[in-house]
Design a protein around this nucleic acid. Structure first.
Lengths: 182, 182, 182, 182
DNA sequence: AATGAATGAGGTTTCATTCAT
DNA sequence: GATGAATGAAACCTCATTCAT
């Protein structure tokens, strides 16, 4: 079996088990059992449980950063930019729903390293919003309102209540109308 | 209703250690060392580590619920109600800053029991907002926007950046002007 | 059971198992089984396997140092001093024969820390010899000859061949006659 | 009799790594990395880690035996024989300084097999000495004194303190004058 | 002959919990 | 109520060795 096949099996298994049991209640033995490989194999690919988690987190945050970069460059009206950016982000997170749960509900609990990644990604999005609202005098407050609102819909509606992406986007769009005015 | 000195010592120690190390990295041995009592004494007052954490959480959420109840009954303009409710909540959380960090950054990671408490308290606040906005047709979206915005300021400005409560309230007030219109 | 009872049991067991299996082939599980205590109990008294070994080593080297100190102060002829010092040392080592095997056959293999203790004790004995021969112009060479000879008898005759102390002392005495002249 | 390139690479690597890390702290993975071959290749040439170590040990002891054989046959005065034998031995060991450290500081710790080789080589040297002193009534004690003295200089001066061979030979010569008389 | 991914037994260590005093 | 030594299950991780390619 090729090296990367096994790593993919381990990553998939890790995502699944982390999602089901949370970071702290996940045992490396759970992951290898799920992946169908030996205990030692895990340590060929990852230095530790934390290292594996970090790998997954980076996998997702890098995709998030790509989306930010894409919309930063796109020439759209403020509202369209915000809404379509949200749409794509929500879709990404919905696709990786289980990973997202780790990211949003457990990430910051693990240790400083993960909190930093979380804060960093947040700051990138905030910067993107502020840039988008650079013509407004309260750009930062707008950014915070939208970030908070977006995160809330993400956490509660998308992830906890398992509402469809469509529903979330619609609600977000309504909110944006209120926040930015019609 | 008074608690024994030893229990108070244990609670204070638990709050301190949980705050510093997080739930999963806190050892019962850390707590008893901090409290200056023997290992076994812990188990006279709490069934388990989880039980001690739960006790602390309930201690704080019950105060939060008192505030909700108080403002639900208070006859104020929407804006004033929202802002003064936020003010008092932020003050409570600022007073119990370390406990709040557990609540907001770790609560949900522990297990379903704690996630439920978090969601329940959130829902109580949301219900309070919806009730407040019962004259608006988009009451729920308003609630979500404000909850998200408030939580964001709480997490990032108050808890992570350690900004003073005054600063947070001002920012919240500005946001509310934008959201509710002047 | 008192704290020190358990520690004594663990030390005795550790000495026995280390003696039988050598440092590297000794498992903490062997020691606790021999001591009749639980695995975790070991770690109440010792930080690690290495720590336990170090404790034993220090126990013995400190007795060796007492003997050195005693003979340094004793007013005897050179030959008598050397021979009676050797006698007492060989008796100590014979009493703690098993510990001595660890000290002489395994000590230095473990790591720098143990090599240092070995070298340090050696240097103390050498200094004692040089002091004793301070009237001779080749004091250091005499010290090296006697140390080497003494160690050889210790290693081969006393420890490996299990010759009685009496035999070793007699041989040592004969050697000393040759080295120091009659 | 010539060995494959790969085996030579493995032997050189093993000598280097064993020398640097000691037997127990050397991993087969360290050796193959140093040799630049794959993990499995090691097991084509050696049955196990122990087998590789044994190979190296035999490589060196056989050279030592050649020296013994050479001086046994050489017709020289006792003193000259002893001193020139020592000179050649010290040179061999100095050339293979790193291997010697394994031999003298770790050999006996590994297991019975290695202790036996050590004792056997020692006995060959002792027999050589006794043979040399066969005219003396205390031949064995002379042998033990010189062996002990020689080993001490080897261990402490040559190997630990890295003194030059010349220094060690000079010291040995002085000692021999004392032991055998002028 | 050479590779190197995979194995898995077995090691060290942690720590929540118990219980005799 | 208080103690704290003892417990032991269960976690993490290592690494000599195998074997299909």
């Amino acid at each position: 079996m090729s090296q990367s096949d096994t790593k993919v099996k381990l990553i998939d298994a890790a995502v699944k088990v982390f999602s089901e049991k949370g970071y702290f209640n996940t045992r490396v033995s759970d992951i290898v059992k799920e992946a169908g490989v030996a205990q030692g194999t895990f340590y060929i690919y990852f230095k530790s449980k934390e290292d594996a988690f970090l790998f997954i987190v980076n996998m997702v945050t890098s995709q998030m950063e790509d989306i930010i970069e894409k919309y930063r460059r796109l020439d759209l009206s403020q509202k369209d930019k915000i809404i379509r950016f949200a749409e794509e982000s929500y879709n990404l997170i919905s696709d990786y729903r289980e990973i997202a749960k780790i990211l949003f509900f457990q990430l910051m609990c693990v240790d400083e390293k993960f909190k930093e990644i979380y804060v960093e990604t947040n700051n990138k999005i905030k910067t993107f919003y502020i840039e988008t609202f650079k013509n407004k005098k309260n750009a930062e407050i707008f950014a915070d309102i939208i970030l908070g609102f977006g995160k809330r819909l993400l956490e509660f509606d998308l992830l906890m209540d398992d509402k469809p992406v469509k529903h979330v986007i619609d609600k977000f769009t309504s909110g944006i109308q209120i926040i930015l005015g019609d």
